[in-house]
């Protein structure tokens, strides 16, 4: 196991930033922590890095105990040997690209073959030849690649990524995301990736952990989290959901059991004889290029479905769903 977190919790003043949390990450695994701001995902990452100290619990990285309240052990950030990429890049403006990348090696007095290793890291992010530039002379995407090179130059086993793409525009983001994933695979890194963007999390990760208010709600492979959300919150946060009225009132009222289905599972035609049918009034239509996204009102719930041809606003239409596609959320007591 590369990362083992046991019973770690953190409070800032009166705010419970992270409730007692357990997490294990296998070597070479790429996992994402997702959730809205204030859910504790960044706190957990900073606790792993050693930039914050937990109130309680144990943290083990690569079989080395980094923090243990019980044993009174606390390895400072500078001795944990992880790589980290920051949201705002955090490149030092007074140093060249070369010096920024070389920093970790010089700081640890590990300067053998310094130039070669810095060049290697810059080649990995396709920035060879940019050694003498200053950060402000580079674009946002290039800066973020420098910060990635800085994180890998010391050849860490674990890399922590704190919303590394959120400061970049959409086109850059897609390209850089693919590059990040292929590099972590190539270098055999164990990665923890923090993001508030569920699409990004699903597309890049082996596993995602959905968090809310300092708590981990669901931990699973992306398909599992998408198809079988464990909580109402997860269903809403990851992807779009259509809630189906059960016997006891509409889905908006509180109940222990919820039924839902993802929009793309609905069909405008009956495919099997046991298909369930729902009818509703069309409220809005958005053309997406390859299809129409339609908001409709079904038994007082607002649904999203997809049509291949433009329907008529205000029409009453019927859509069909296979019973096996209906997912039941058993949320327990929340």
């Amino acid at each position: 196991m590369s990362i083992v977190v046991e019973g770690v919790e953190k409070t800032f003043g009166t705010v419970k930033a992270l409730r007692p949390t357990n997490l294990t990450v296998k070597t070479g695994e790429f996992i994402s922590l997702v959730g809205p701001s204030g859910c504790g995902k960044t706190t957990l990452l900073r606790l792993l890095a050693g930039l914050e100290i937990p109130d309680n619990g144990d943290i083990t990285l690569m079989d080395r105990v980094m923090f243990s309240r019980r044993d009174g052990k606390e390895v400072p950030a500078e001795d944990r040997g992880v790589g980290m990429v920051f949201q705002d890049f955090a490149l030092w403006p007074h140093m060249t690209v070369f010096e920024n990348v070389a920093f970790g090696l010089r700081a640890r007095k590990d300067t053998a073959r310094l130039k070669e290793r810095v060049t290697w890291a810059l080649e990995k992010v396709q920035l060879a030849g940019y050694e003498d530039r200053y950060p402000k002379q580079m674009s946002g995407g290039q800066q973020q690649r420098v910060s990635f090179a800085r994180a890998i130059v010391t050849e860490p086993k674990v890399i922590l990524l704190d919303e590394p793409l959120s400061a970049l525009d959409a086109v850059l983001r897609d390209g850089l995301r693919l590059m990040l994933r292929s590099l972590t695979d190539e270098l055999g890194l164990t990665a923890v990736y923090v993001t508030h963007d569920q699409h990004e999390a699903m597309s890049i990760s082996d596993r995602i952990v959905v968090m809310k208010e300092g708590e981990m709600l669901q931990d699973g492979v992306p398909e599992e989290v998408y198809n079988h959300p464990s909580h109402l919150f997860v269903a809403n946060f990851v992807g779009k959901s259509n809630f189906i009225n059960t016997g006891n009132g509409t889905a908006d009222t509180d109940g222990a059991v919820r039924k839902m289905a993802r929009p793309e599972l609905f069909s405008t035609q009956r495919r099997n004889k046991d298909d369930v049918e729902f009818s509703g009034i069309i409220k809005t239509i958005s053309y997406l290029g390859d299809r129409y996204e339609v908001h409709m009102d079904v038994d007082g719930n607002s649904w999203i479905t997809y049509f291949t041809q433009r329907p008529q606003l205000g029409d009453k239409v019927t859509v069909y769903l296979s019973p096996k596609d209906i997912h039941t959320i058993e949320e327990g007591l929340s």
């Binding site: 890095a49 001795d79 030092w92």
Partner: peptide, 15 residues
């Protein structure tokens, strides 16, 4: 100076 500039240095192993 953004505090992350110091954090980045710390994570990079600087005392």
């Amino acid at each position: 100076i953004d505090v992350s500039l110091f954090h980045a240095a710390q994570v990079s192993g600087a005392k």
